[in-house]
Design a protein around this nucleic acid. Structure first.
Lengths: 235, 235
DNA sequence: CGGTTTCTGTCGGCTGGCCGACATGTCCCG
DNA sequence: CGGGACATGTCGGCCAGCCGACAGAAACCG
């Protein structure tokens, strides 16, 4: 189920040619970010684009009631803070380090000038934005049309694709450890409901936890819990 | 509340220089699309990008249970079907004409080659994708963190921004007529709940309907029904 | 190592809004 | 123009899952 080279795919820096990467890094400032420290926050100016060199960063909305809506996790090599740099306007989301991290930052002005002279990179930025757009479209569909148990399953499918690696025996192990609250924040439900759904899936044999408490998915069983997209009447 | 030049903003073709536009149109095929006809559907190859010349097109997911999740409407001049062209992979959404429409189509291969030689247009594509990404992020937050009445209000704010024009007396008139079902499909609720919420807002004086049944919003009253984004603790 | 904080498992009361239904109003098309 | 299709207004029963709570387990940090 994980797409081949998925990890390499999301690693923006690794997908640049050595020359393009060198030109970009020449524009970048490096910064250490402690666990729980904000890289940027909603309301601030979106005048830098960031690359995660090491660590993990979560990107989330924070609602007026204080509810955190977690959009995605950034892994090393990934670009983030991109939407406001491309489109302009202030930040709408928060980017916060989940662990001690290292971030490279390029100013909006430098980045735009760089894209104008590096067409292959501009296309790659399109690619990243398009991929995230498709993903959010899937999240919206899931939120609207699926009950909580289905949403947990669909999240597992997404996590397997972005953070999973296939073990020799066909199982998929997630490289990332998430709390039930984090998962709940990604699918718009409560921690308790995630706990309950995961335990039901565990009893069904769909998943378990390895010695390090990483989630391990039995992919064939997971697929049997997954809904297939509908064919349009008239198709 | 409507951003100045919002309509011009989303009109991709109008934002191109005459030369860039001419080069692009040289690659395009024109096609008439009847009301309710699909421009493309989920599962098909994403090998064309489309520009709406006239008419209106809705872009939506269709869930396995047959529930339509409406992501956005395309207006004349707008580009759509872009995400799969940039990122690759099959279509995940449907694009269907809401009325008799005219569509210009450019093949993925031609479009990518075009972007490589037209850097300003590649940046504009970034802009469009980023804008849509921000919008979907807001939709997700709304779905997760707001009750139905709040979601209706937030939808009105979004519609005013993208489809509204300011009348001399400060009211905002929507240029687009939406059924309650369409609005429900945009915010993940039922037609009945939208009807109920709209009627409550009408009784509050927030909105009414003009002679053509277009929705008219009293923007100051609408703002008083809108939640403000939270300040992050520690900001 | 031990105290504190965070995470997970479990429970039951409560309610927002979904759902199906029906009546009335509006629009469309032959 | 008029009949049929579609949209809107209204109602009440029902339930998925939210919420608050508590206990036990696990992780963290000085």
């Amino acid at each position: 189920m994980p797409e081949a080279d998925r990890e390499r795919f999301s690693d923006f820096l690794a997908r640049l040619s050595p020359r393009d990467r060198g030109d970009l890094l020449r524009l970048a400032l490096r910064r250490k970010v402690a666990k729980c420290e904000l890289v940027f926050q909603a309301g601030s100016a979106g005048n830098f684009v960031h690359f995660l060199e090491a660590g993990r960063v979560k990107v989330y909305h924070l609602s007026s009631g204080g509810k955190e809506v977690l959009l995605w996790f950034c892994l090393p090599g990934e670009i983030f803070g991109l939407a406001e740099v491309c489109h302009g306007g202030g930040r709408q989301v928060y980017a916060e380090a989940c662990e001690s991290s290292s971030v490279l930052s390029v100013s909006q002005r430098d980045f735009k000038a760089y894209l104008e002279t590096h067409p292959a990179v501009a296309l790659l930025v399109n690619d990243v934005l398009a991929c995230r757009l498709r993903n959010l479209g899937n999240v919206i569909q899931s939120l609207v049309a699926s009950d909580v148990n289905e949403r947990v399953v669909q999240l597992l499918v997404r996590l397997a694709a972005t953070h999973g690696h296939k073990a020799p025996n066909g199982e998929i192990c997630l490289d990332i450890r998430l709390t039930h609250q984090e998962m709940a924040n990604m699918i718009g439900t409560t921690r308790q409901s995630v706990t309950s759904a995961l335990n039901a899936l565990r009893r069904l044999g769909v998943l378990d936890f390895d010695d390090n408490h990483h989630l391990r998915i039995h992919s064939e069983r997971l697929l049997s819990e997954t809904c297939v997209p509908a064919q349009h009447p008239g198709a």
